[in-house]
Every structure is written in C-alpha cells, then in structure tokens.
Nucleic acid binder design. Structure first.
Length: 280
DNA sequence: GACCAGGTATTGC
DNA sequence: GCAATACATGGT
C-alpha cells in the first residue's frame, strides 16, 4: 500500500489489496456510511465526517486532518494492518463453500468501530431490518449528537444518552428497544461495563459481561465483540447465519472456522444475504 | 391484514 | 431446561 499526502485534508491510497469500500460498507457491519454517487461514499466516524472517492486504483480520503490522522485512526479503522490475503487463503483451506464466500466479496474488511456506537447500533438491530436500523440511528444522532458539519451529526456519547428517559427517546421511534438503549448507556457511562476489560478478557467472560445489559443476548454481544472490540474469534449467528450453517455447514459451529471465525462469518453472512435462494 | 426484519425477555410447561 | 409468545415500527 502506498499512501500519498496531498494536503492536510486529503490523502490518496494506491496499491491497496483485499479492500473494497462497497463490500466493506454494505456487508452489514456498519450503519453510518452512505453511497452518494457511484464513486463516492460519505461516513461519520469518531466525530469526523469523511468522504472517500474511488478513481481507478486510487482511494481518495477527504476530511479535516485526514493526513495527520491516517496512521492514528484510519489505518486501524479499516484494519489495513492485517493481511487479509493470508487470512482468506487459510479460511479457504477449511471448507470449499467458505472459499466460495471469500471469493464472492474478497474486499470485505472488518472495521474497528467505536465500542459504544457498535453496542447501541446492534441493540437497535434486533428484530429489525437494515434500512430501518439506519434510519433510527440517524434520528438518534440528529436528536442527541453534535452537528459537526452542517447536516452531519456525531453519534451521541453514552453519558448523554444515560441522562435521558423513554419519553426523550420517542422521536427516534425505536419501539421496545428504548429501555435497552438506556440500560446500555447507563452501564457503559458508569463504567460498570468497561470496554478495555472486555477487550482483554477471556471471550466467554466478556460475552457474559455484555449480556448483563437488558436487551443484549448472544447475537448482540457477539456483534459488539467483533465489530466494536475487534475480537476476530467472535461469531455472530443471526437468521442468515443459521440458514447458511444449515445449508452449507450442517452440524458445524464457530470452532470449525478457527481463530478468525468472525471474518469467516462476515464472508458467509454477506454471501448468503446476497444469494438468498441458496440458503432459504 | 398477515408477515417479516442481523433477537431478546418473559411466560408456560 | 426448552418451546412458544409478545414486543414497536414500517415496509411488502
């Protein structure tokens, strides 16, 4: 990967392998990236607005201080320090269908997202569909986040949400999930649950810790571990993964997919969701 | 109107 | 323990 600084607010990446923006943003792991035109995505991440455009083999980042913050934030956020080529090669040896799933969207990378935002977003995701999840999260940000650029709002902190009640949350129309969001915000802002601890703890302990939050079951806990704490062994199983396991990997579970089960899950989840007739 | 959506808490056996 | 059911909301 080559990275060229144009000015404080713009950089260009060239020769990046195993990385596709569309696949990474649309594989169901994040909710605050939007496709503006065929070659342009805009996202709000860590209280920053970032625009990413694609020209041939170049990826152009535009946003306040991206040049200085590339090593500090973006390299990590997009997981560019890990060799996905090697990981996919190893995953492909495990199972032929997994190999097909890897080839279907070879540019997926697991984003290292903010812990609280991930937890809250996946609480909202339960018994819900992706377009509506995005709408609810957007309303949450517009109502309670900071306007960091005209019409772009940051994700509100857990301490801001912890001070609200159910009536305050009514405008975001999240339904029965309101009390879950409040309980999560309270437990995170009070440090009763600490992301640093969850990151280093044994994964079973970390999962149990997360499930103390009302509205956090096995699936939301697993998504939080994978996308919010980068625990790559975490293996979320939702309806799509259930279908995929039944259809392609009968009798198998997370351990079959090894230490990078979470990454395997992402290729399988996306492949199944994009090819529903194969698993339904 | 019934059914579904990246599930979970509650209830009934 | 384990299977059924309710849960807000909005789209087919």
């Amino acid at each position: 990967m080559i990275f060229k600084i144009i000015n404080d607010n713009q950089i260009i990446l060239e020769d990046v392998h195993d990385f596709d923006l569309e696949q990474t943003f649309n594989c169901g792991q994040c909710f605050r990236w939007n496709k503006i035109t065929e070659n342009l995505f805009v996202g709000v991440v860590f209280e920053r607005v970032v625009r990413i455009s694609i020209e041939k083999n170049k990826i152009i980042f535009t946003g306040r201080d991206v040049a200085h913050e590339f090593d500090l934030i973006w390299r990590d956020y997009f997981d560019l320090n890990i060799n996905y080529y090697k990981i996919k090669k190893n995953l492909s040896l495990i199972d032929p269908t997994l190999k097909i799933a890897c080839k279907y969207a070879p540019g997926i990378r697991i984003l290292k997202q903010d812990f609280w935002e991930t937890l809250c977003s996946f609480i909202i995701s339960q018994n819900n569909n992706i377009p509506r999840i995005k709408c609810i999260i957007e309303r949450l940000c517009v109502n309670f986040g900071q306007e960091i650029e005209p019409n772009f709002f940051s994700f509100p902190s857990s301490s801001v949400i912890a001070k609200l009640n159910q009536a305050d949350l009514a405008p975001i129309k999240c339904g029965f999930r309101d009390s879950y969001i409040l309980d999560a915000a309270q437990k995170i802002s009070s440090r009763e649950i600490c992301p640093k601890k969850l990151k280093s703890e044994d994964i079973n302990t970390a999962r149990a810790e997360l499930m103390k939050i009302k509205g956090v079951g096995p699936k939301v806990a697993e998504c939080t571990l994978l996308y919010g704490l980068h625990r790559l062994e975490a293996f979320p199983v939702d309806v799509w993964m259930k279908r995929a396991l039944d259809a392609f990997f009968p009798g198998k579970n997370a351990s079959y997919f090894g230490p990078y089960a979470g990454i395997a899950q992402q290729y399988i989840f996306h492949y199944s969701r994009m090819n529903p007739t194969l698993v339904k």
